[in-house]
Amino acid sequence: MRVTGIILILIGIAMLIFTGGINFQTKKKVVDAGPIQIDKKENKHVGWPAYAGGVIVVAGIVVLLAGGKRKGSA
């Protein structure tokens, strides 16, 4: 549980840093006819709402604290 909480917190912080999302480019082969090769570059965007990072950080803290309470009481 502790590792899961830490991973959630790190992902949430990364989402807060990259608030608008991330952009990346993919390369797709369109034509490959012997010596002739044509590639197409596509721009892609993965976006999320601004509050999503904060929600994930809070969820990670809850998981971290819940995991710690179970170990201490058992």
Rank of each mutant, 00 (worst) to 15 (best):
I61G: 02
I17T: 13
K28C: 08
I9F: 00
T19P: 09
A50I: 14
G5H: 02
S73V: 01
K71I: 11
M1S: 09
K40D: 06
L64D: 01
F18N: 08
L10M: 15
G12Q: 06
I9K: 00
K29Y: 03
V55W: 07
A59Y: 03
N43W: 02
L16P: 04
D32W: 07
G67T: 00
V30R: 07
I9R: 00
G68N: 13
N43H: 06
V3H: 05
P35H: 07
G47M: 10
L10I: 08
I13F: 15
I11L: 14
V31H: 12
G54T: 07
G53N: 12
T4H: 08
Q37D: 10
G54M: 05
N23E: 15
G5C: 03
W48M: 14
R70S: 06
P49R: 05
I61L: 14
V57K: 04
D32R: 04
A52N: 06
K69N: 10
F24Q: 12
A74P: 05
A33R: 11
I13Q: 05
K44Q: 01
K69L: 13
F24K: 14
M15Y: 01
T19V: 08
I61W: 03
N43D: 14
I17G: 14
A33S: 08
G53A: 03
K69F: 12
V31E: 09
I7T: 10
V58M: 13
L8D: 04
M15G: 03
P35D: 09
M15S: 05
G54N: 10
V30T: 09
V63D: 04
M15Q: 06
T4F: 15
W48F: 10
G68H: 10
G47K: 01
Y51C: 04
G68Y: 01
F18M: 09
K71Y: 03
I36C: 13
T4Y: 13
K71M: 08
G21F: 08
P49Y: 13
V55F: 15
S73I: 00
N43S: 02
I13V: 10
T19Y: 11
G12R: 07
V63H: 03
I17V: 15
G60T: 06
I22V: 09
F18Y: 14
Q25E: 11
I9L: 00
I6A: 14
A14V: 04
W48R: 07
V3I: 15
L10E: 06
K69C: 11
G5E: 05
G54I: 08
I61R: 00
I7L: 04
F24H: 09
G34F: 02
E42A: 02
D39A: 13
E42P: 11
G53S: 12
D39C: 03
A52S: 08
Q37H: 11
S73A: 06
V57F: 10
A14G: 15
D32E: 10
K41V: 05
D39M: 03
L65T: 01
S73R: 02
V55C: 10
D32L: 05
I56Y: 00
F24T: 05
F18E: 15
A74E: 12
N23K: 14
I7E: 00
H45W: 04
T19R: 11
M1Q: 06
A50V: 13
A59Q: 02
K69G: 14
